[in-house]
Design a protein around this nucleic acid. Structure first.
Lengths: 144, 144
DNA sequence: GCTGAAAGACCGGGCCG
DNA sequence: CGGCCCGGTCTTTCAGC
């Protein structure tokens, strides 16, 4: 994991389909050398996976929000996690330290869907004591 | 944008390097037909870009946190945005509705770096009235 | 959206510093 | 051991239908 690997990660981050020969021109290495480095980055799980970034706006998901959730007791965690796993509109779920226990990032069509998500999905889970929703007005930066 | 396109997006989301012939087997289409659909998804900006997902843990970024920031007045926004744009440890920055104005997602090596980020970078910006940091203990789900 | 041919990319073995 | 060169194979691309 030297500067060349970092450069390769940067190039692939910008364009995951960039060919090894194209990358080679940037880092002054031959095609097999670049392929080998990419293979090792995958093997070391530094590259988790190749993927596509989908523009949420273009597929009708105009509403992004963060929801903080407080659970009453540890025994309610399993049911909550089950609901999260089965709800595709929940894009991220982090267990956090602080006055709330979980922070969710959700992507939805509109506020009606948000209302349904909160009242029919999240608050229906046993043990959900409190939620606090922050609606995203605009996003300046969004990387992984 | 029909069911086949949705299926292609799903397959590429799981593996951005999946070949057109492989995708074709899943959606029962020929290679050129798949390529054409992918090209059109890119053209319509439904596919924002092909990229790689880097495992933060593997590159030493063991600490993930969300920081809520309150700005005093609108005239301080420009300086704040400038700082965000120039700080790579800030992975996301959303303008939000609620008692705070911005929500940041940051990835760092350790708590020392977090301390520096908050005290030397964020609080140094003129107009930053208040911040509230939520440390991520674990992540159950993280998609785009 | 399918077919077929050409260009280019990838993968293996062998070699060199 | 890491990188380069050179085969064969697979993939992509483009034309024509």
């Amino acid at each position: 994991m030297d500067q060349i690997d970092e450069k390769i990660l940067e190039l692939l981050g910008a364009n995951g389909r960039m060919t090894s020969s194209e990358i080679g021109k940037h880092v002054h290495l031959s095609v097999p050398a670049v392929s080998e480095r990419i293979r090792k980055l995958e093997e070391a799980q530094i590259i988790d996976k190749f993927t596509v970034r989908v523009n949420r706006e273009q597929i009708g998901l105009h509403l992004l929000a963060f929801i903080m959730v407080q659970l009453e007791k540890p025994e309610h965690v399993a049911g909550f996690r089950e609901m999260i796993a089965q709800t595709p509109s929940v894009r991220e779920c982090h267990h956090i330290a602080g006055s709330y226990d979980y922070l969710l990032k959700v992507a939805l069509k509109n506020t009606s869907e948000l209302e349904l998500l909160i009242s029919e999905q999240i608050k229906r889970v046993e043990g959900v004591a409190k939620t606090n929703t922050m609606i995203v007005l605009s996003t300046m930066k969004e990387e992984m």
